[in-house]
Amino acid sequence: MNRIDATFDSLRAIGKRAFVAYVSGGDPDQDRSLEILRALDQAGADVIELGVPFSDPLADGIVNQLAAQRALEAGATLPRMLDLVRRFRAESEKALVLFTYLNPVYTYGFERFHADAAAAGADGVLLLDLPPDEIPRNAELEERPSLRHIRLIAPTTPKERIPLLAGASEGFVYYVSRAGVTGAQTTLAEGIAENVAEIRRHTQVPVAVGFGISTPEQAAEVARAADGVVVGSAIVNIIAENAGAADVAERVLSFVKPLVDAVKSV
């Protein structure tokens, strides 16, 4: 069974929510990125989203942009990110999603990417700039069942479009809780519970909510409305602040632990 599905199934069985952690792969460098993945695992994250750095991340705020830049400068490439997945998979069964933009995957070859990512141990993929509408129009973008395909739904998504997106979602639906780029916010967006409920009318797939969540209080509040809570930029920010430090992974661990606990308290 796919690790994403298994994770959400077992959490559902005990009435708990998933904590989904995003980091930019290869940031600040390849070896410490592996240590950070271990720290997320140890902190109790249920699903890890590993960002494959792209030179032009137009849906990302400044924190994730700079992370991608650090990773690229440290030599990150898509094949090296797959290598990172392979190394992590050798020691953990944690569900793992590759999170990136289409062009690196397109250049690598869509079919080859599906085969190699699954072989390396990835469970799913989220391509920010590939709406499902384009897939039937582009023969070379035919999706393979070796990976779960996670779709975004936004607060700007019209109601009549939700069935298409929810229906095309595998693994989980990623509900982007605010119009905007990635980045930590001091206040939560409104209407999360209503929008999650609307999405659930159209799919059995779990709904995770992200964009702008940075504190345990926010994480707990979102956990009450959704099946999963995604925290990204706030973690990446800890990595940025400690990019030069030897103990960056420990600092990530101590930042993420209370977030996980908050989600699990619900």
């Binding site: 137009l58 289409l102 700039d129 709406p131 384009e134 779709r151 479009r161």
Partner: peptide, 22 residues
């Protein structure tokens, strides 16, 4: 109707922009 010129073009954007573009 989807903005394709043969195999080129299209709407490869984050979901947040789809409604505005439509």
């Amino acid at each position: 109707a989807g903005g394709h010129f043969g195999p080129y073009g299209g709407m490869f954007v984050p979901e947040t922009l789809m409604a505005a573009l439509t």
